[in-house]
Design a protein around this nucleic acid. Structure first.
Lengths: 195, 195
DNA sequence: CCATAATACTAACAAACGTTCGTTAGGAGC
DNA sequence: GCTCCTAACGAACGTTTGTTAGTATTATGG
């Protein structure tokens, strides 16, 4: 086994990701997904044990991408200021690289079966707390205002997470430009400063 | 007819709003809603013509609340600086007053029937453009940085709209305190300033 | 006190749902 | 040439879905 997923399985995941984003999990039938890859509804069960498994794979692959992007940033030797900015850039990068996956990761995970929803929720919390650690250290080092670290982190992630709603790869702004803009908004706010 | 909605109709809307928030529109059946108010599934159709009508009423009542809260702010004679801050406070107020409704307004409107989804989308755009007008004038008057007004507005509304995810009425922060905090985040950012 | 709505019930509908079934076609490996 | 495996098929399963019909019950107003 040289690949983690067979080509057909990946096709199914890609199609399901798009459909779950467009219509939502419960408004997408197994037959819809199968149609999109040119097979019958029942044939999907040669690759997945259940519809829930498809969603589970999608959101976890997406979570993997977020962790993988953040990890080198946290391990780096840069100062907290730069780390937090890099973390924002990395996070936006994951979102813009696959908008469908980001949307499903952000909104559709709630429709996982109960046990998995709990488990996934913990993964999201773990990711959030990596960001919160950066905020905490940033405050302690005096780089950030002494805000409530939890609410400050939620503010950052709220602003970032919903970039998938309006970002368009063919638009006039690159992923990097968006990331820089968001970082500036978050660190400096919208108020004009008379320097 | 002295009231816009009969008491039972309001009970149904309240229950449906909570269930649509908790489980999502498609994961909530008509029988679920009926159970929550103590009637049979079919009896719901004495009050609504369809399930879609229930969602339609919920999101439009919520939209009404957002417009009603923003209107006096825009009509006031205060300067743009104060207006934008008041708009943020008003917006947060609507969200915290009914978290379920805010959640359905923000996420479940996508499951409206096609025609209504388009119509509702226009209402959301209209609301957003009222905010954008404030941002534009704020920039022109020199109160705000010369950012892209569209992205600046999306930044504000992203940060505000998802307060429903973590705000708890019984928590340690009041709606007003949250609104002040968010306004400070948005205007001044998280970076520490050495005054 | 009766006419007339409004509201509720029960039962049923057709359609769609996720899933399972037995079967089959086509390679791969011995 | 035979077996095994995978992936697909088409049909069916039992359940749930939104909705409707016919009927009963409850309130209301003249």
């Amino acid at each position: 086994m040289s690949t983690l997923t067979s080509p057909k399985k990946e096709q199914i995941l890609t199609a399901a990701t798009r459909l779950f984003h467009e219509r939502g999990y419960h408004a997408t039938s197994v037959r819809d997904i199968a149609d999109a890859v040119g097979i019958q509804g029942g044939s999907l069960y040669a690759h997945f044990e259940s519809k829930d498994d498809v969603l589970w794979d999608i959101v976890n692959l997406s979570a993997d991408a977020f962790f993988a992007a953040l990890d080198p940033v946290i391990r780096s030797n840069r100062d907290t200021n730069a780390k937090l900015r890099d973390a924002i850039i990395a996070h936006i990068g994951v979102i813009t690289r696959d908008l469908d996956a980001a949307a499903v990761y952000t909104t559709e995970w709630r429709h996982l079966a109960t046990e998995r929803r709990t488990e996934f929720s913990a993964r999201r919390d773990a990711y959030e707390s990596l960001f919160r650690d950066l905020v905490r250290v940033g405050i302690r080092e005096g780089f950030l205002s002494p805000v409530d670290e939890a609410y400050g982190t939620l503010f950052i992630l709220s602003a970032l997470n919903y970039v998938y709603l309006w970002f368009r790869p063919e638009g006039r702004m690159s992923s990097e430009a968006v990331a820089r803009m968001m970082a500036d908004f978050i660190f400096d706010g919208l108020r004009r400063r008379t320097t």
